Amino acid sequence: MENKSKRVLIACDSSATLLGFRGKLIAELVKSNEVHVFTPKICCDATADQLKAMQVIVHENALNGSNVAVFSDLKYIYQLFQLIRTIKPDIFFPYTFKPVIYGTVIAKLCKVNRITPMLTGLGYNFAPQAAKRSFISHITGHLLKWSLLYSERQHIIFQNQDDYHTLLKGGIISKRHKAFIVNGSGVDLSNYKYSIPNTRYISFLMISRLINAKGVKEFYEAAKLVQQKFPEIKFKLLGPYDNNIDAIDQELYALIRSGEVLEYLGQVDDVRPHIKAASILVLPSYYGEGVPRCMLEGMAMGRAIITCDSVGCRETINPSAKQPNGFLIPVKNITALASKMEHYIHHTKDILIYGVNGRKFAKEKFDVNLVNAAMLKIMQLN
């Protein structure tokens, strides 16, 4: 490989996010840097081929990012330690919890010059409902505090103001820490192109992993209420049912798969045809998002949205009353969700107007090129 100016190591907990969430950033990094990624096994040949074509050097592991797995985590820590000692990166960029918690500590021990951990949302461990998991939440908080201990070489990246203030209030970080806030992961407006939504045959689409805190049950119950009045309206759910501590129960999963209320689409490689076919995007999440990517994709394609007044989600609603792009509803409020769905059914022009406004808002705030420029500045690579 030709001599590049800096050696960058990226660590993640899912290979699926490398190109979908970080593809444009990686493309910018490889222009003048040697880029390595430390990722769970890449099962998609197209992803592996594209990373190879970009001259990204891939190092695979067996990390389980969703659940506690002591022996697997210890093996991951050892492998990452050995990798950092071997390649000696100038910049270490971990994102999501386990790579941030384990990787940031290891990078400090190995004296990496620039460490830029990115918190892509705090998840349910820092949400009010996390009382049910108080032990796990307590441990996670201590591990994060230990990992993010102040260092002159460390620049912490957040995707929203709420997460920064949560960690500040919780004593996990202090005002002394070097912290930066970017507008989510951004969205590639050239890849997610505007299309006119169908207002004659209205359909609502939710894109999410099937976990409780994403609001899957709320979407199902609200759809059931609306269908009692408007049986012709379609409701679709797209996303995987995976092995997660907060996965929906088997009873709800069976109801979803029955197709009586929702059309379940499962997991797909490309969400764009499904967004194009939808009239409105819905995400009643109280998970503790960074900024939900599916909402940005929907906005970019000109779709009106409904989401919760919760961390990360509220970032996707334009605060300007002159350019509304959707509705915020209270967390876990099925009645409010159904009411906003009915608003679009009764006011089909708003589907069009809010969709155009959403595209404009995405361009102004969430354009991936703007976000990546901010990221490169934080990494001191521009």
Score class of each variant (00 low, 15 high):
residue 72 S to N: 14
residue 120 T to P: 05
residue 111 K to P: 06
residue 84 I to F: 01
residue 108 K to Q: 04
residue 91 I to L: 12
residue 89 P to A: 05
residue 115 I to P: 10
residue 104 T to H: 08
residue 71 F to H: 01
residue 85 R to L: 14
residue 71 F to Q: 01
residue 134 S to T: 11
residue 127 A to V: 09
residue 82 Q to W: 02
residue 75 K to I: 02
residue 124 Y to F: 07
residue 98 K to N: 00
residue 130 A to K: 03
residue 111 K to F: 14
residue 125 N to F: 10
residue 120 T to R: 04
residue 106 I to E: 09
residue 135 F to N: 09
residue 94 P to A: 08
residue 109 L to W: 07
residue 130 A to M: 08
residue 78 Y to W: 03
residue 140 T to A: 11
residue 118 M to R: 15
residue 100 V to D: 10
residue 140 T to F: 15
residue 110 C to A: 14
residue 101 I to R: 06
residue 81 F to C: 04
residue 135 F to R: 12
residue 98 K to Y: 03
residue 90 D to S: 01
residue 123 G to I: 12
residue 110 C to G: 13
residue 134 S to Y: 08
residue 114 R to S: 10
residue 109 L to T: 06
residue 131 A to Q: 07
residue 88 K to L: 08
residue 73 D to Q: 11
residue 85 R to P: 09
residue 101 I to M: 04
residue 70 V to M: 01
residue 107 A to P: 01
residue 116 T to I: 15
residue 73 D to G: 05
residue 134 S to A: 07
residue 99 P to T: 14
residue 89 P to M: 05
residue 93 F to Q: 07
residue 133 R to D: 13
residue 100 V to Q: 06
residue 74 L to V: 00
residue 87 I to P: 04
residue 114 R to W: 08
residue 77 I to W: 02
residue 112 V to H: 02
residue 116 T to Q: 10
residue 108 K to T: 10
residue 89 P to I: 07
residue 85 R to C: 15
residue 142 H to E: 09
residue 139 I to M: 04
residue 89 P to K: 05
residue 79 Q to H: 06
residue 127 A to S: 06
residue 96 T to E: 13
residue 68 V to N: 13
residue 71 F to G: 01
residue 126 F to G: 08
residue 122 L to Y: 00
residue 97 F to C: 00
residue 91 I to E: 12
residue 120 T to I: 02
residue 127 A to Q: 10
residue 80 L to Y: 07
residue 101 I to K: 08
residue 137 S to Y: 14
residue 84 I to L: 00
residue 68 V to A: 11
residue 104 T to V: 13
residue 78 Y to G: 05
residue 104 T to K: 14
residue 134 S to I: 10
residue 103 G to K: 03
residue 117 P to S: 02
residue 118 M to C: 03
